[in-house]
Amino acid sequence: MAEERNGAENGGVTGTDEDYGPVVSVPAGIGFLNHVRKKRLVIHIDLNNTILVSDAVTGQGTVAALEYFLTSVTWGKKNDHGKWEWLSDAPSLHPPSSDAVSYYSQFGRVPGFTSVAGRRFKGVLDEHLEQLRWPEGIKGDKELSVRGEDGRLYHWILPSFFQLLRDLTQEEWEFSILFRTFGTDLPRVLRAVSRAVNEGAHPLFPDLPELKLSLNLTPGKIRCSKRAIVVSRAEERASSLDGDRGLYQYFSAVHGLGGFQDHFDWWASNSFSLRGGKPVWIDPFDQQVQHIFIDDNIRVNDEDTIVHPKVFLDPGGSDTRTASTFELYDITLVQTDLLRAISDPSYFTQRVHICLENYERNVQHGVM
Rank of each mutant, 00 (worst) to 15 (best):
R233W: 04
D185Q: 14
R223D: 13
S194V: 06
R227F: 13
G183N: 12
P219C: 03
K212M: 11
A228R: 11
A201W: 02
S232C: 12
S194M: 09
A192E: 03
H202Q: 06
L190N: 02
T169V: 10
L204G: 01
L208I: 08
T218V: 15
V193M: 05
K221T: 14
N216P: 06
Q170C: 08
R233S: 08
G246Q: 14
L241H: 10
L190M: 07
S225Y: 06
P187L: 02
D242F: 10
F175Y: 10
D185T: 15
N198Y: 11
H202I: 07
L186H: 07
F182T: 06
R191S: 14
F175P: 00
S176E: 08
G243I: 00
E235D: 15
P187E: 05
R227C: 10
F175G: 00
L213F: 07
T184W: 12
V189F: 03
L204K: 05
R180W: 09
P187R: 07
L241P: 07
T184Y: 10
L186S: 04
V197A: 03
A238W: 11
S214I: 13
R237W: 13
F175R: 01
T181G: 00
G183I: 08
L190K: 01
P219K: 00
D244G: 10
W173S: 04
R237I: 15
E210A: 13
V193W: 04
T181M: 04
V193H: 04
D242L: 13
